[in-house]
Simulated scan of single mutants.
Amino acid sequence: MTAEQIVRTFFEEVRSGRNPDYASSVMAEQVLAHQVISEAEVTVTRTPSDYTDHVREMIEAYGEFSLEILELLTQGDKVYVRWRQTGTHVGEVDGYSPTNLPVIEFASAVYRVENERIAEYWIQIDRMGIEKQLERNRS
Rank of each mutant, 00 (worst) to 15 (best):
P102S: 07
N19M: 11
E4I: 13
P20C: 05
I69W: 02
T86H: 01
Y121R: 03
I123V: 11
A23C: 06
V81I: 14
G91P: 01
T99P: 01
E114R: 09
R46K: 13
V55M: 06
V36Y: 09
Q35S: 11
R56P: 04
E135I: 12
Q124R: 08
L134F: 11
R15F: 15
L70Q: 12
K78P: 00
V90C: 00
N137G: 00
Q30C: 06
E135S: 11
N137A: 14
N100K: 05
E41W: 09
E12I: 06
V103Y: 01
E114I: 01
E57P: 02
Q124V: 14
T47F: 03
V42M: 13
Y51C: 03
T74P: 04
E71Q: 13
H89F: 01
E41C: 09
K78L: 07
V44L: 10
Y62T: 00
F65C: 00
S24F: 05
Y96P: 01
I118D: 01
F11R: 03
F106H: 15
L72V: 12
V81G: 07
I59F: 06
D126T: 04
E29P: 10
A40T: 13
A61C: 09
R138H: 09
P48I: 01
E114A: 05
S25P: 03
A3R: 02
Q35D: 12
G129S: 04
D77H: 11
K132H: 14
T45E: 13
S97Q: 15
Q85I: 06
R84A: 05
W122L: 03
L134I: 07
M27R: 02
I59R: 13
P98A: 12
P20G: 08
G95T: 04
T45I: 10
T47S: 13
R56S: 08
Q35M: 13
R8C: 07
T74R: 14
L134V: 06
K78V: 08
T45F: 07
D77R: 08
A40R: 12
D21K: 15
M27P: 04
T9E: 13
Y96I: 01
T86V: 06
W122C: 02
K132R: 15
R15P: 00
S108R: 08
S108K: 05
S108P: 01
V26N: 11
A28M: 04
R138I: 01
I104Q: 09
Q133C: 05
V103M: 00
Y96W: 05
P102I: 06
E12W: 10
Q75C: 13
L67P: 02
A3V: 08
S97K: 15
L134D: 09
G76Q: 14
S97E: 15
S66E: 12
I123W: 00
E131D: 14
A23S: 14
T2Y: 08
V113M: 01
Q124F: 04
T52N: 12
Y121N: 07
T2Q: 08
G87P: 02
E60S: 13
G76A: 13
E68F: 09
E120S: 03
E68G: 02
P102L: 05
E131W: 10
S16V: 04
V79N: 06
S49K: 11
D53C: 07
T52G: 11
E114L: 08
E135H: 12
V81F: 10
V31I: 12
D94H: 10
A119L: 06
T43I: 12
D126K: 01
R138W: 09
S24A: 06
R112A: 07
Q5G: 08
N19P: 07
G91S: 03
P20V: 03
